[in-house]
Design a binder for these strands. Structure first.
Lengths: 306, 306
DNA sequence: TCTCGCTCATAAGACCAGCTTATGCCCTCA
DNA sequence: TGAGGGCATAAGCTGGTCTTATGAGCGAGA
């Protein structure tokens, strides 16, 4: 009854989950062992913290902290809730780091241009790490395809770029910073999910697939690996749409492994091994030939290596 | 203290990140292509949605949607923001699924008992998947060590358990549902981060390590793998504390790979390969001997297999 | 033993963000 | 040329969260 429509919990999440301020406060309580100290840390008064924690406990229906005249410690349930809360806050921190870079446009000391996949999945983490090292480095971010990244760099409108294509655009130097693999995924109900032997490349090429549109980095790599022959079942213009379609059982999809970590872990999708196709691709940092990254750009680059 | 560098404006996150309701609304706009439709979906009026999106744009300093008399589409920046928002919302959904299970105690159709690591990192995802399949299954969760899990099951206070120890408690049947590895991690500044060859087991045994307390599942596996000889540098009572200590550079730590995915991806920690020690462990579902899981328990079990 | 210092709880009032309803304009399509 | 869907603006209400002021429990040191 709590869920009116088909979407499980669609839209009512905010009423069931404490807001970010409350979750942050809870983390502070866990770390500092006192409501008052936590209140000071997040910049509110002690009664405000007390009442906020209390209303969180009311909302969740669970006691989270054991209060005593000598401080407050988490209950067992509270420890668990705090761990889950930490994930939410970390996601919010990544959001913040990304959003901040999106805003700054002008007057930023480090201007980054990145391909969509990298901007989506990796950059927020890098920006957080950079912020930890150099808190006052203002970063601006522009996301686009390889061509757009190259244009920005060559027009001196960006200091450092990240691309995921097969080739490095002319006029740029690069270094490989990580690898990515394209993987074939299906919904757990799909017959392929029960295969015992890897898929042959020819078989993959012969099967209509849910794909990104022609011209996307993902599509390029796939076409190259199969010899230019990938057959589209549906063509969609965002990774998210492809994922949703695959989860919904429309058919097999080919996606970056970066994009489907969560779905694989939750078994909403199953990965099918493929044999005989080079689905690995390099992720590269790029910069105008001869202009080795220096200063903040060098710093960020060193964070991405490993 | 341990966080001096990392915490940039610690506690002001809630002022810089839109609240969960706004993020959910944005996802709905992205999916439905219209502010009004999104408003209907999340159960608010169209002007409310309009104003909420607008104030989010003001807060982030970026235009998120292109409004037209025929609907609203995301801008490029909006698409990126939406992808980051999705991660926050997904983390919040996992929080919700977990919290709901923590609350229900009584009158739940499926009572689960799980070890801490599993409850922390895996169970919320499983519960979400279960909820997607069987929206009206009320689940209750109790987290504790292997012994506590066994007690609950044998006292018929739980229907299904999950443990991560080396041995299956007596009186229980089990099946392996996944594997976990303990890994050695250090801060990037630690000398080991620059090693080129794997660490020998003997070397690991000889080095004082940041560890969970004696009696924890993690510690048991490590002691067994090293022959009962792990030397503690510090003993801490939660995975989180161990992680924080290692990130702070206190020394090498041994942790489940489940616990450090994020930290490795962001290079706050570096994983050191180890040679000659069996650091793999099984994660198992358990139930009272002879009472094979049925109904919702069977359903949940089938979600965890792969 | 008294008192200081820390803890948390309660009470009363201010404030603001977000909601609703009512309305208007723009555009497209039949 | 209306009908209908899309979005924006305006005015007023409400509720949650903040603040300050205060009280009460417990422990450590003079």
């Amino acid at each position: 009854m709590s869920e009116t429509a088909g979407r499980v919990g669609g839209g009512m999440l905010a009423h069931r989950v404490p807001d970010l301020g409350a979750l942050e406060l809870l983390l502070a309580v866990a770390r500092l062992g006192s409501l008052g100290a936590a209140a000071r840390e997040v910049g509110i008064s002690q009664p405000a913290a007390s009442s906020r924690i209390r209303s969180m406990e009311r909302q969740l229906g669970v006691a989270l902290v054991d209060r005593s005249p000598r401080g407050s410690r988490l209950t067992d349930a509270g420890a668990l809730v705090t761990d889950w809360a930490r994930r939410v806050v970390e996601a919010a921190e990544a959001f913040d780091a990304g959003a901040q870079a999106l805003r700054d446009r002008r007057d930023s000391r480090l201007r980054v241009a990145a391909s969509m996949t990298i901007a989506e999945y990796l950059l927020p983490g890098w920006l957080l790490a950079l912020r930890a090292q150099r808190p006052d480095t203002a970063v601006s971010l522009l996301a686009g395809n390889s061509t757009a990244v190259a244009e920005r760099l060559l027009a001196d409108e960006a200091d450092l770029g990240f691309v995921e294509g097969l080739t490095v655009p002319p006029g740029l130097d690069s270094t490989v910073i990580a690898h990515d693999r394209l993987i074939v995924v299906v919904a757990p109900a799909h017959p392929w999910a029960r295969r015992r032997r890897p898929l042959a490349a020819a078989e993959l090429a012969a099967t209509p697939l849910i794909l990104r549109e022609r011209g996307s980095g993902t599509r390029q790599v796939l076409d190259a690996a199969l010899g230019g022959l990938a057959r589209p079942l549906i063509e969609l213009s965002s990774t998210t749409a492809v994922k949703a379609s695959a989860v919904g059982g429309a058919g097999p999809a080919v996606l970056s492994e970066l994009a489907v970590g969560e779905e694989l872990a939750m078994r909403r999708l199953v990965s099918i091994p493929v044999e005989g196709a080079a689905l690995r691709r390099d992720l590269r940092a790029v910069w105008p030939t001869g202009h080795r990254p220096t200063g903040p750009a060098r710093e960020l680059l060193s964070l991405t290596r490993g």
